[in-house]
Simulated assay, not measured.
Amino acid sequence: MTAILEKTLYTGQTRTTGGRDGQGKSSDGELAVRLSPPGSGRPGTNPEQLLGVGWSACFIGALRRAGQAQSIRLPDDVAVAADIALGNTADGGFALAAKLTVELPGLATDDKARLVEAAHQLCPYSKATRGNIEVTFEIP
């Protein structure tokens, strides 16, 4: 099922040249990154790292919204670490997999699990990847 936007809240605009050996910039000038292939040792970041940062930031926002809905106050030091893996598939193609480690210090184990599940349903990045890539969670 494809989600249809009822109202656009924001549109991020970027332009990338050169692929994994290029650069990417946002239209507002706030983002300018040099790109390099993973493991190349050359200066720059890669699309997997950028996806991890974006997804983690969005997921924290979804955790906050889930916390409000469940009357659970999130700790000030909430954090999400993302491991985005790029790999080969059996058919010779490429695919991604993700592991999100969600740090919610001071909360009860049951509360942590409920918040992560609710956030995974709310987060637009989670929705975009659901059913398309393997996603696992670690909740220490």
Results as ranks from 00 to 15, higher is better:
A62Q: 05
A79M: 08
D21S: 15
K99N: 15
R114T: 02
S56H: 07
G87T: 03
E117C: 00
R34L: 10
D91P: 10
A119H: 01
D111Y: 03
G44A: 10
L96T: 04
V80T: 04
L107G: 05
A57W: 05
V80S: 01
A85Q: 11
K7M: 07
L115Y: 05
T45I: 13
T101A: 09
V53L: 07
R42M: 14
G54T: 04
E6K: 14
I60K: 11
G18E: 12
L51R: 00
G54P: 10
A98H: 13
Q68S: 06
L107K: 08
R15Q: 13
G67T: 08
C123W: 01
T101V: 06
P38Q: 05
A3C: 01
L100Q: 03
A118T: 11
R73E: 15
A118P: 00
G131F: 03
T17G: 09
E134V: 08
G19I: 09
N88Q: 13
Y10F: 13
R64M: 04
G106V: 09
G18K: 12
D91K: 14
G106M: 13
T101I: 05
E103Y: 14
D21F: 11
R64Q: 09
K127E: 05
D110V: 13
G41F: 11
G106D: 10
V135Y: 06
L115D: 06
M1V: 10
G87N: 03
A62C: 10
Q13K: 15
C58E: 05
D83V: 13
W55V: 00
G19D: 07
I133K: 07
E6H: 11
R64F: 04
A81M: 08
G93I: 04
R64I: 02
E134K: 11
W55P: 00
I133Y: 06
A57I: 04
V80P: 09
A98L: 15
V78D: 09
V80R: 04
Y10D: 02
R114S: 06
T17Q: 15
A57G: 14
Q49N: 06
K7R: 14
V78Y: 09
D21K: 14
T109L: 12
E6T: 11
L115N: 06
S36A: 15
A32L: 12
V33R: 01
R15C: 05
I72P: 00
F94L: 15
L63E: 08
Q70R: 13
L100Y: 02
I4D: 08
L104M: 04
D91F: 05
E117H: 07
L104H: 02
E134R: 12
D111I: 01
T136M: 00
D111T: 02
R42W: 09
G92L: 07
S126W: 03
K127R: 10
I133Q: 08
K112A: 07
T129E: 00
I72T: 04
E6R: 13
A62H: 07
P37H: 03
L96C: 06
I84F: 11
L115T: 06
A32I: 01
T101C: 02
S27F: 15
A69D: 13
A3Q: 11
E103F: 12
C58D: 05
L9A: 09
R64W: 02
Q49M: 11
L50E: 03
T11Y: 09
